[in-house]
């Protein structure tokens, strides 16, 4: 398990030592979801051998992240980028090794997942922000900002399911990016939504970075990676192949994929 120590400040000054420490982390999945399972498998513990229908999505991954760093994760599809993000967000747990995250996380991954179709936009904001640890009063204070940023003021009492997919992403980004947590995880969620809003999101991310947040960014866009990140992690076949300055990592990635 990871430690639950939280910092009171999002700025670099508030944290000493690494905020994220991943040591020899590995996680395996079943190849075939409908495969047979038995009670024995379930309770066999975390260190048992790999079964024939399983594969390691990530293995022997180690790195540490200092507060305020901006890290871009690159790699082809299916090489473990999103899984790594989920491990850092602690929504899945490592089968071997350890992942410790010593500050609060605002995860922009599967962001629309936390919303409930039948509840109104207003109720959803309170619910999602609450699930990520905000108190009612904190949400009250930020409610106006959240709605304004999402440009959704006319739909406060509309059930979430009736929003367009663009509005959904806008609302979700707006809530999560207002969590004011020291660590920000961004998956390729921003591919949806129009150009104008994407630029607004990027401005917001830049603002958070300038405020001393730690960024963990997964993208296929070289431009975006160079724009925000200083350090890169290159994942291939579930292994961390290269950990270095973003330009070096991108050059290696380009060389490997033949671009």
């Amino acid at each position: 398990m990871t430690s639950e120590v939280r910092t009171t400040a999002g700025t670099a000054a508030g944290v000493t030592g690494p905020v994220i420490e991943v040591r020899d982390a590995g996680i395996r999945f079943r190849r075939n979801r409908r495969g047979r399972r038995s009670f024995k498998d379930l309770f066999a513990g975390r260190r048992r051998r790999l079964r024939p229908d399983e594969f390691w999505a990530l293995r022997n991954v180690s790195f540490t992240v200092q507060p305020g760093e901006a890290i871009g994760v690159v790699g082809r599809n299916g090489q473990g980028k999103s899984t790594l993000l989920k491990l850092v967000a602690e929504v899945v747990l490592a089968d071997e090794g350890s992942v410790s995250v010593r500050a609060g996380v605002a995860p922009l991954i599967e962001i629309t997942g936390g919303f409930v179709d039948d509840l109104s936009v207003r109720d959803n904001v309170y619910l999602t922000a609450g699930l990520h640890g905000m108190s009612r009063r904190e949400v009250d204070e930020r409610f106006g900002e959240i709605i304004e940023f999402a440009e959704i003021g006319a739909f406060l009492d509309t059930p979430y399911k009736h929003l367009s997919s663009g509005m959904k992403v806008r609302l979700a980004f707006s809530v999560i990016s207002r969590l004011e947590e020291p660590i920000l995880l961004v998956d390729e969620v921003l591919a949806v939504g129009d150009r104008g809003f994407r630029e607004k999101c990027y401005a917001r991310i830049q603002e958070l970075l300038d405020g001393g947040r730690t960024l963990f960014f997964v993208s296929h866009s070289e431009r975006d990676l160079r724009r925000f990140c200083t350090r890169g992690l290159y994942l291939d076949r579930g292994e961390l192949v290269l950990d270095g300055p973003i330009d070096e990592v991108l050059a290696r990635y380009a060389a490997d994929t033949g671009h």
């Binding site: 939280r6 009171t8 999002g10 640890g133 905000m134 108190s135 917001r204």
Partner: peptide, 16 residues
């Protein structure tokens, strides 16, 4: 949204 507001220390979140 000003960056001053961003840099203000965060209130302690409820834990445990």
């Amino acid at each position: 949204m000003t960056s001053a507001a961003l840099q203000a220390p965060l209130r302690e979140r409820a834990t445990g």
